[in-house]
Design a binder for these strands. Structure first.
Length: 452
RNA sequence: UCCGUAGUAGCUCAAUUGGCAGAGCGGGCGGCUGUUAACCGCUAGGUUCUUGGUUCAAGUCCAAGCUACGGAGCCA
C-alpha cells in the first residue's frame, strides 16, 4: 500500500470494523491496553464506539514508527492507519477483527494513567470517576442506561404520551418537606424539584397523557446501595386512568424496556456478565398483590425463620411501611417484578385517593423488582376532589398558598387520574445486576460525595 | 443519624507475641514475531490517616478525631 492510499484511507468507527475487512482504514481513539513480544506489538484501541486490536510488526513499519508504538502509554490518544483483517485471536468489541498498523500519529502521549487493568477499591474508582467511565464495564453500563431511557420514552411516545417538561426550581414541596434542597431565588426561598408530578397533573388537563423526564433532588441523609441525592426519574401521568390501568401501563413499559435492552445491548450485557435468562423471564403479566396480602405473606415467612436476627429484621405489623428487607423477601417469591397495591394511607403521600369504603388504605401501587432490587416504581390514583385534597394539605401543614394552583386543577373540569414515577438508576441497577446505584449514573451525587 | 469493619508504596494487599517496612500490579531500563490482566531480568518508589498517650521499643496496644466501605431508617 502506498502513502497516498493510506492518507485517503477511510475514517471508520470501530463498531463497524467487520464491514471493512481487507480495506485500508483510519481509526482515532485511545490506547486501552498494550502488550507485545519484542518486534510484535498489540494495541487495544478504543474509540468510544468499540474496541479493536491493532497489531504492529517491526518489519512492516518505519523504525521510528515502530518505536513510537512501543513507547505508547495507556490512554494515549492516537490516529492509526492500517488494514482490517479477520483473526479469531483478536479481542475487541466486536471481536474477531484487527488492524495491521502501517502508520501511527500520536496526538498526546498520556502520563502515567492511574487506573490499571488490575483491581481497585470503590473509593479510588469513585475519586477517578471522570477516568473510570473509560473502563469497559462502566462504558457498557452507561450505554445500557441510554438504551433504557430511550426505550422508556419510545414506548410512551408510541402509546400517545407527550413529553412535557416540568420545572427544576419550584416554590413548593412535592413530598415531604424535610428532604428539600434550598435555592436562593433572588432573596426568596425556592427548592430543587423532588418530582414533576404536580405539574404533570396540570399538564394532563391540557394534553391527556404526558410524561416528564429529568433530574430530581432529595437532601436525604441516606447512605444505601439504592439512594442518590440527585437521580433521574421518568414520570407519566394519565387523565381518566384507574389504578388497574396504571399497572397495565407500568407492566407494558417495563417489559418493553427489558426486551429492548436484550435486543440492542447483548454485547454490553456480556461485558458486565449479566445473567440474561433472568431478564428473558420479564414478560407480562406481573403478579399483583395487595398490601394486606403482602403483610400476611411476610408474617408467614417470618414465622418460618429460625435465626433471631433475621426474624427481627423481617418483623412487620399491618400499617407499617416496608423496609428493604421486606421488599427483598416479598420479591423472592417471584421471578418477575411484582405489584403491591393499596398501601396504608398514613404511610403514603397526601395526594393519593383513599379506597372507597376503606379510607385507611389508598389507591397506590409500587412495583418491586426481582433479585432484591426493591421498589423501582411508585404510583397512585390522585385525589381529584378539591375538598379532600385541601383538607389533606392542611393536615400535612404544607401551607395552602403554595398549592393554590394545584387546587385550581380540581375546580376546572377535575377528572380521575393516575400516574407513577420510575427511578432510572434503580432500573439500570436491576437490569444490569449491579450491587449499587453509584455505577448507574455518570457522576453520582451521594451523601458525602460531590466530586468529580 | 445509628450499628459494624477498615485506613501501610501510584493501586490491591502482607507484616507471627509489641522487636530490621514487604510482595504483586503499575512506572523506568533491557530482552522476546500472536499477545489476551503476556512473560523473563534489573531498577526507582514509604510522614504506616491525624493528634495525643503507654513502652527500652508502636504499622501493631490505649484515647479522641477524620475518611471510606458494608448494613439500618427514609424513598424512586
Amino acid at each position: 500500500m502506498s502513502q497516498k492510499e493510506l492518507s485517503v484511507a477511510k475514517l471508520i468507527q470501530i463498531k463497524d470494523i467487520a464491514a471493512y475487512e481487507g480495506q485500508a482504514v483510519r481509526v482515532r481513539g485511545w490506547v486501552y491496553n498494550k502488550t507485545g513480544k519484542g518486534r510484535l506489538q498489540f494495541i487495544l484501541l478504543r474509540d468510544g464506539s468499540g474496541q479493536a486490536q491493532c497489531v504492529a510488526f517491526k518489519k512492516e513499519m518505519a523504525p521510528a514508527q515502530f518505536e513510537a508504538v512501543r513507547a505508547l502509554t495507556q490512554e494515549s490518544s492516537v490516529i492509526i492507519r492500517g488494514t482490517v483483517r479477520a483473526d479469531d485471536r483478536a479481542p475487541g468489541f466486536p471481536p474477531g477483527f484487527e488492524i495491521g498498523i502501517q502508520e501511527l500519529e500520536i496526538l498526546q502521549l498520556a502520563q502515567e494513567y492511574p487506573i490499571s487493568p488490575k483491581e481497585h477499591g470503590t473509593e479510588f474508582l469513585m475519586n477517578h470517576r471522570h477516568l473510570w467511565l473509560r473502563s469497559n464495564r462502566q462504558w457498557a453500563i452507561l450505554r445500557i442506561r441510554a438504551t433504557i431511557i430511550k426505550a422508556m420514552r419510545d414506548w410512551l411516545d408510541e402509546q400517545g404520551f407527550l413529553l412535557v417538561d416540568t420545572p427544576i426550581i419550584t416554590p413548593a414541596a412535592g413530598e415531604e418537606t424535610t428532604t428539600l434542597f434550598d435555592v436562593d431565588y433572588f432573596g426568596e426561598n425556592a427548592f430543587l424539584a423532588q418530582t414533576g408530578q404536580l405539574y404533570n397533573e396540570a399538564n394532563i388537563m391540557a394534553f391527556g397523557k404526558v410524561y416528564c423526564f429529568g433530574p430530581t433532588f432529595r437532601a436525604e441523609k441516606s447512605k444505601t446501595r439504592r439512594h442518590l441525592i440527585e437521580f433521574w426519574m421518568l414520570e407519566p401521568e394519565i387523565a381518566f386512568c384507574s389504578l388497574e390501568e396504571l399497572m397495565d401501563i407500568e407492566e407494558g413499559m417495563v417489559a418493553y424496556v427489558v426486551a429492548q435492552v436484550l435486543a440492542e445491548r447483548a454485547g454490553e450485557l456480556a461485558i458486565i456478565e449479566r445473567d440474561i435468562d433472568k431478564l428473558k423471564a420479564i414478560t407480562p403479566p406481573f403478579a399483583r398483590i395487595s398490601y394486606d396480602d403482602a403483610v400476611a405473606r411476610l408474617q408467614e415467612r417470618q414465622r418460618q425463620l429460625d435465626d433471631p436476627a433475621a426474624k427481627a429484621e423481617l418483623a412487620i405489623e399491618w400499617g407499617e411501611d416496608f423496609g428493604s428487607p421486606h421488599e427483598t423477601a416479598l420479591a423472592e417469591s417471584f421471578d418477575k417484578p411484582v405489584f403491591v397495591y393499596h398501601y396504608p394511607t398514613a404511610v403514603k403521600a397526601f395526594y393519593m385517593t383513599p379506597v372507597a369504603g376503606r379510607p385507611e388504605v389508598c389507591r397506590s401501587v409500587d412495583l418491586l423488582a426481582p433479585e432484591g432490587y426493591g421498589e423501582i416504581i411508585g404510583g397512585s390514583e390522585r385525589i381529584h376532589d378539591e375538598e379532600l385534597l385541601a383538607a389533606n394539605i392542611d393536615k400535612m401543614g404544607l401551607g395552602r398558598e403554595a398549592y393554590q394552583w394545584y387546587l385550581d386543577l380540581r375546580k376546572f373540569g377535575s377528572v380521575p387520574h393516575a400516574g407513577f414515577g420510575i427511578g432510572v438508576e434503580r432500573t439500570v441497577a436491576w437490569i444490569c445486576g449491579l450491587s449499587h446505584v453509584r455505577e448507574t449514573i455518570p457522576y453520582a451525587r451521594l451523601l458525602n460525595r460531590k466530586y468529580p
